[in-house]
Design a binder for these strands. Structure first.
Length: 345
RNA sequence: GGGUGAGUACCAGAGUGGCCAAAUGGGGCAGACUGUAAAUCUGCUGGUUUUUACCUUCGGUGGUUCGAAUCCAUCCUCACCCA
């Protein structure tokens, strides 16, 4: 299984799309499909034949997180969630049922269940109710999935999402429930949403041992390169995150030697190559001073180069993680590099 | 030579007797960003001090006043107009 990214599918219709999916469909654009050694054959056996021939499978999110970030213009009910477009105020509704349909239409290889992303600082009572809603939606989603067929000539699978906020009892309950609907993989959601990083790691440690080894574990929305390595050490296989592109656009570069804020004055006269240990062509084609200049000047090209670099770096991180797992020295390697990559340059 | 207008912090530009260390932009310096309403947002930007506070600033000098970036006199500089 090659490590790869799904390119941006935001606003881009699948080449075989059979229905107009409408403009309200919002999809993330940086899925980092790191997969631990040993899972490769699983995917081939799972009937997702495109995984064999195409190293860039499509993964679509349900929109559950968008709804989470829409506080103020959303309404959650048992039926689903209604929200207003920030563009024209029009109302839209996500239900587990129409969400399955949408992701069928897009033709994602991996579809994500519709869930409620519970805030990291929610109390147990709220988290309890939130989890009940997510469980109800998951059951309906699974039913709708079973009763519908792919619209294209390949199989699709969906990942249920484990919620439960920062409460171990809820996380365990959610894991047991979600596993009933897990075919090839399962996701952990509702983390990195306000809680302490250590708490996030605790939740991963709580959940992962409950998941069978042959199931891919996808940690949604995480995170920094260090977060990713720590999560891998706790059993996670897949990630996605806006961080490489968003932070890149805002001038932050992640490298093996630490984090650079390209807007900082210290780079103004630094004509060394962008990242000597980088794997992207931009790392050896442009200088730190040039990128600094682009950001200070507000040139879009700076954001483009930074995104390119960060995506390449993220992929390098997970590729090397795989190699060290295979070599048997992952933990030792991880502890050494985490120190380096988290320092400020 | 005559006339009019203007000189405010790095830049532009408000302010026209006390609530002014001086609005607002820009620039500068830093920070944030984790299933993308995000090429975004936040803070600082005369000096000393942790804050209160105090000190030095609004072209120069000298006045008026309890108090001046603001009023008066004068000088300097710039812009425009007339000759």
């Amino acid at each position: 299984m090659p490590v790869g990214t799904v390119g941006s599918v935001k606003g881009v219709y699948h080449r075989d799309l059979k229905e107009d999916i409408g403009a309200e469909i919002i999809l993330g654009n940086t899925y980092h499909l790191y997969l631990r050694p040993g899972l490769d054959t699983l995917y081939k056996a799972g009937g997702l034949h495109r995984f064999e021939s195409w190293d860039r499978p499509i993964l679509t999110d349900s929109g559950g997180f968008q709804v989470f970030s829409l506080t103020g213009i959303r309404k959650l009910t048992r039926e689903g969630c209604t929200f207003q477009s920030h563009i024209d105020g029009s109302r839209h509704t996500f239900t587990p049922e129409n969400n399955v349909h949408t992701q069928r239409v897009i033709g994602a290889d991996i579809m994500m269940a519709l869930d409620e992303c519970c805030p990291g600082d929610a109390d147990h009572n709220y988290a309890r109710k939130s989890l009940d809603l997510t469980k109800n939606w998951l059951e309906r989603y699974a039913k709708s999935f079973r009763e519908s067929d792919p619209l294209y000539d390949y199989q699709q699978t969906f990942f249920p999402i484990i919620q439960g906020c920062t409460y171990k009892d809820l996380r365990l309950e959610a894991t047991e429930h979600a596993l009933q609907f897990s075919e090839l993989g399962i996701a952990i959601g509702g983390l990195a949403v306000g809680e302490e990083t250590e708490v996030m790691y605790e939740m991963i440690e709580t959940v992962c041992p409950q998941i069978p080894q042959d199931r891919a574990r996808y940690l949604m929305g995480v995170g920094t390169p260090a977060n990713i390595l720590e999560a891998i050490s706790r059993g996670i296989d897949m990630f996605d995150c806006v961080m490489p592109t968003r932070n890149g656009r805002n001038g932050m570069l992640f490298t093996w030697n630490g984090i650079m804020n390209m807007r900082n004055a210290k780079w103004e006269q630094d004509f060394s190559e962008l990242d000597p240990s980088g794997t992207s062509f931009v790392d050896h084609t442009y200088t730190k001073a040039y990128l600094h200049h682009l950001f200070k000047s507000g040139e879009m090209f700076g954001a483009m180069l930074a995104s390119e670099h960060n995506l390449a770096f993220y992929l390098d991180v997970v590729r090397q993680a795989r190699e060290h797992i295979q070599a048997g020295d992952f933990l030792q390697w991880k502890d050494a590099v985490v120190k380096r990559i988290t320092q400020r340059m």
